[in-house]
Design a protein around this nucleic acid. Structure first.
Lengths: 167, 167
DNA sequence: GTCTATAATTTGATAGAC
DNA sequence: GTCTATCAAATTATAGAC
């Protein structure tokens, strides 16, 4: 795997666990066994790296939703995977909470992620109210599960969403 | 108003808008027209300040819920006020997203806030599934509304919560 | 309670050799 | 593409005068 990909991996994990401002070029370099100047070679500014991470995250997110037989269940699955496999919340959930404190072009990319999510959900669920509830509760449920260090609140959110949708 | 109260105000606003790591003693001092050494006189370490802010926030939050005739509507109101009057999301929503990247004692105070919220909601709504949905969707709805710079998603969440509760 | 002064560390970023 | 070396700025925090 090339350095760029490794940098994107390490940055995504660190932002998702600690927040944008808790990620430094030196820490990333140490993790990869290189020097911080080499990180700057691949991404001149920190916001270039941040923007690239969000773009890759968003692309992968929607690819994982392709051709799902049950859209809402598939949608919940993607978030559940992100939470339990990676032991971290949604990248855009972290960055959205820090919106005003991060560079404008990174915040713009996060905004686009949420707009695309609402469009996808509205398209597949047919109702924008249900779309708003699904996105908000899953994002909030991840954040609270992380704070409590207990996934059960996320599981309850998922169960409620699917049971109310079946009515 | 004394310096401690002014510091708590400024810190709360800055964390809620930008995140924990985007708040510095110098910025706080500048806002109050004092020097950063004077901030350290009142709060020796940054985590002492952070913990005090969460404690005050939590105390005020539950005071605002006292004696509400309609618990769920009152609960939504508190979050709506926080979002629209302060033009910022929930303090613990920001800190919860940064959980692993902030000092342990601050994270512990945030965890307690969410535990208390779930207990209050479960007590007043009677069902822990509804409690999980209310807390998660309101927290998530605030965060996404901030990212989109558009409150309508929060308003939809609120409307959905109240209409589903009435069924 | 606030100040000046300062320490020690970390940060994002660049220049130029290899 | 990675390195050494370095910079300017910012950070948390402390000592001691007033």
């Amino acid at each position: 795997m090339d350095t760029v990909e490794k940098l994107l991996d390490a940055t995504e994990r660190r932002i998702r666990q600690n927040g944008y401002h808790a990620v430094s070029f030196r820490d990333l370099a140490d993790e990869l066994g290189i020097k911080s100047a080499s990180v700057h070679y691949h991404f001149r500014r920190k916001e270039d790296l941040g923007k690239a991470v969000v773009e890759r995250y968003s692309k992968r997110f929607f690819e994982a939703l392709d051709n799902a037989p049950d859209p809402l269940a598939a949608y919940c699955d993607v978030f559940e995977h992100a939470l339990k496999r990676d032991e971290a919340i949604c990248l855009c959930g972290v960055l959205g909470a820090e919106t005003r404190g991060i560079p404008d072009d990174v915040a713009a990319e996060v905004k686009r992620f949420f707009e695309d999510n609402l469009a996808w959900l509205t398209n597949h669920l047919g109702d924008i109210g249900n779309a708003a509830m699904a996105l908000s509760s899953l994002e909030g449920g991840m954040m609270i599960a992380q704070s409590l260090d207990d996934y059960s609140i996320f599981d309850r959110v998922r169960a409620e969403l699917l049971s109310k949708a079946a009515q």
